[in-house]
């Protein structure tokens, strides 16, 4: 990634190796675990990240219903993170997540955006950018259609512009 793109993404590392397609999971926790373990194997996060992000989802669920799709944005504290990055996981079949702030409301999630946050003040800008972009037409729809990790990475980077 060139320097300009790095700045633009608030320092977030976005690479095909963090992307996972066709995740087979039957619960929200199972899906997060698969994506988080891949993040750990890639060296982005520490071994404590996996239990921490699972516990965090139980305490503060992160499902969000956008107009075009249901998504989830699991995240946890910076102490579990080596360097800032985003992992995207597409589920083979949607999994039910609890909605952020409204655990009684369920969201069918087909795509997960896992955030490894290292310096909160910088990377929160990135979260704001994501939330704004996901409200725009066709952005989530396009990401949902990607079939390879490279395609997903390229489309995600393009959608942030």
């Amino acid at each position: 990634m060139c320097e300009e793109e790095r700045n633009f993404c608030s320092g977030m590392d976005i690479k095909p190796e963090y992307m996972m397609l066709n995740i087979k999971a039957s619960t929200d926790i199972e899906a997060i675990k698969i994506l988080a373990e891949n993040f750990f194997e890639a060296g982005v996060v520490k071994d404590t990240f996996v239990p921490a992000i699972l516990q965090r989802e139980k305490d503060f669920c992160t499902g969000l219903q956008f107009e075009e799709a249901g998504i989830a944005i699991p995240h946890t504290d910076a102490i579990h993170v080596n360097y800032p990055a985003v992992a995207i996981g597409k589920l083979e079949t949607p999994v039910v997540f609890k909605s952020m702030g409204m655990p009684d409301t369920l969201v069918e999630v087909g795509i997960i955006f896992m955030l490894a946050i290292k310096e909160p003040h910088k990377q929160i800008e990135f979260l704001q950018l994501l939330m704004t972009k996901f409200q725009e037409k066709d952005i989530l729809r396009r990401l949902m259609k990607c079939n390879t990790a490279e395609e997903l990475t390229a489309n995600f980077l393009a959608s942030l512009v």
Binding site: R56, F60, D77, M100, P120, Q128, M131
Partner: peptide, 15 residues
Amino acid sequence: ACGTGICTSTAVNAK
């Protein structure tokens, strides 16, 4: 307010 007081609440703050 949000879980940590820095993450989603900051996104809400800006908007």
